[in-house]
């Protein structure tokens, strides 16, 4: 549409159409579309710069300082990072967080995938789809508190029920072995409907004729699931995993509301430890160093996921 400035004569006679398309795109960048384009990305970009990039730069700087907030930061080089390597609680925090992520993501992905496939193949009911999303609509803290009450050892309804059925009561939040799985499953409960919906959206991009053809060829539901659904869902699943894994590493609120890192250090996840260091011990420099490490870990995990799952390409088409 936009006229190219290049003279056709300079081109080989059979200029392929893709090239022309590309050149028209290039010219639109320098043309009148640039302004509205910038206008549209500005809100997000400004937010990104002000609330992410700039704090990240400062945080990285603080990680090389001894910073107690109320006095100016003091450059200490890599001292915080050396301390970090020797701090058992940091290793513990990463270990505990990893345990949480494995349980949380493992259970959540399997359950959500199951729910999504059920929704896709069995029901068209908006009621059911809506109901699945319900837990996600409740605030994190409220979910945590509600479960905290229900799982109370002596007066919680879950333990009272266990007791009536004749099973021993469980100290869900108080037992070191149970605390992380409990918190992980609470968040599975909250997020599974939402994750299922994301996967469900991915399922809808798979053309139904593939299933019809498979059915004609005598493929059952199970076989269709593994041979058609899973491969074609891969890019969507990869993106869902990148988002949920990153979110899962950032577990904080449920811990803060229920166990506060205890018993002993059983639930002192990375974010909670950072929070404690910064806001109750004023070690902002050291807390920033741990934040930077967490950032690097998350970035590598996300990168690895995208590469390994080939998120950028689809087997459709």
């Amino acid at each position: 549409m936009s006229t190219t400035t290049k003279s056709p004569a300079t081109r080989p006679p059979a200029a392929p159409p893709p090239r022309r398309r590309r050149s028209s795109l290039a010219s639109s960048w320098s043309g009148s579309d640039l302004r509205p384009a910038l206008l549209f990305v500005a809100p997000a970009t400004i937010g990104f710069l002000v609330f992410y990039v700039w704090p990240a730069i400062r945080g990285t700087y603080y990680s090389f300082t001894d910073f107690k907030v109320l006095s100016a930061p003091n450059w200490v080089g890599t001292e915080n990072y050396q301390r970090l390597v020797e701090d058992e609680l940091v290793w513990n925090a990463f270990g505990v967080t990893l345990q949480y992520v494995v349980i949380n993501i493992g259970a959540q992905t399997v359950i959500s995938l199951g729910l999504a496939v059920l929704m896709h193949r069995l029901t068209r009911s908006m009621m059911i789809r809506g109901a699945l999303l319900m837990p996600y609509l409740v605030a994190n803290v409220v979910v945590a508190l509600a479960w905290f009450w229900m799982l109370d050892y002596q007066i919680g309804i879950v333990n009272v029920l266990l007791d009536t059925v004749g099973i021993d009561r469980v100290a869900f939040f108080g037992d070191s072995a149970w605390a992380i799985p409990t918190i992980a499953m609470i968040n599975v409960w909250r997020h599974m409907g939402y994750t299922a919906l994301l996967i469900f959206a991915g399922l809808q991009t798979i053309p139904p004729h593939l299933y019809e053809a498979a059915a004609l060829d005598g493929s059952g539901e199970v076989r269709s699931f593994f041979k058609i659904t899973m491969p074609l869902l891969r890019p969507v699943l990869a993106m869902v995993l990148v988002i949920t894994v990153t979110g899962s590493f950032q577990i904080f609120d449920t811990v803060a509301v229920t166990t506060a890192g205890g018993p002993v250090n059983a639930t002192r996840v990375v974010y909670y430890y950072i929070f404690e260091l910064a806001f109750s011990r004023f070690e902002f420099g050291y807390a920033s160093a741990i934040s930077v490490v967490l950032f690097l870990v998350l970035a590598s995990v996300a990168f690895a996921q995208i590469k390994l799952l080939r998120a950028g390409e689809s087997d459709l088409s």
């Binding site: 609330f51 990240a56 400062r58 907030v69 803290v141 950032q250 950072i274 902002f284 920033s288």
Partner: peptide, 17 residues
């Protein structure tokens, strides 16, 4: 504790001086 929960985390990186 719930009150402390929500908004505080991003501040670790964002804390201004």
């Amino acid at each position: 504790r719930l009150v402390a929960a929500a908004a505080t985390v991003p501040l670790v990186l964002a804390a201004c001086s």
